[in-house]
């Protein structure tokens, strides 16, 4: 974006800044911390774990207020269609770029747990443009476009932390709760299911 000043910072510095924020007004303050910042790629090296099977979720930091994750994507990998349980989410790119597809939910039936999804927008997430999940349409899918041919690492800030999310299956028109797990925590690979 022309004229905008971007500040590079290491991931540890980002953690420290976020840790200092008070609980009250955390969401607004965290947004200010994230926007306009570019992450130093070298500082993310301890959290780079790529898998050929699926993108990986790597825990950087977690406390009661927020959770910071590094997600590593091989070309062609994508998330399921999911939401964030009403939590705030920001994404910053450490390496490469990603594409975010937003969906709107129609005809949601809380009892039968059925719904219908309609795609609403496609947004490219780049290193100089942090992205917030749209609170009005929080259902989305993220992917590393195969044709781009490069790996991607995205840093996700969630407030507050959550360990399950709703995953949507457009083919069958249903949604369900899914337990989330980490590929690594604090730079160390962990056992499956953790």
């Amino acid at each position: 974006m022309p004229g905008r000043t971007l500040v590079t910072l290491a991931i540890d510095d980002l953690v420290r800044e976020l840790e200092r924020l008070p609980e009250e007004g955390f969401v607004e303050a965290a947004r200010d911390v994230v926007h306009g910042r570019v992450l130093a790629p070298r500082s993310l090296e301890p959290y780079q774990f790529f898998s050929t099977r699926h993108y990986t979720r790597n825990l950087i930091f977690k406390n009661d207020l927020f959770e910071l994750l590094a997600l590593c994507w091989e070309p062609g990998q994508q998330s399921s269609v999911h939401n964030h349980r009403g939590q705030q989410c920001w994404m910053m790119m450490g390496l490469g770029r990603l594409e975010n597809l937003n969906f709107r939910v129609h005809d949601r039936d809380e009892v039968a747990r059925t719904c219908r999804l309609e795609p609403t927008s496609v947004i490219e997430i780049t290193r100089d443009q942090a992205m917030s999940v749209d609170p009005d349409e929080p259902v989305h899918l993220i992917r590393n476009v195969e044709a781009w041919g490069e790996r991607a690492l995205s840093v996700h800030l969630y407030s507050r932390p959550f360990d399950t999310c709703e995953v949507y299956c457009p083919e069958r028109g249903i949604y369900m709760d899914v337990q989330l797990s980490y590929w690594s925590t604090h730079g160390r690979p962990c056992a499956p299911g953790r």
């Binding site: 937003n102 709107r104 309609e118 795609p119 609403t120 927008s121 496609v122 457009p170």
Partner: peptide, 18 residues
């Protein structure tokens, strides 16, 4: 604006992009 409705496989790129 931006709403797209249809069935993947039959919808065009502009519709898929919203």
């Amino acid at each position: 604006e931006g709403e797209t409705i249809g069935t993947p496989g039959y919808m065009p790129p502009e519709q898929a992009r919203g």
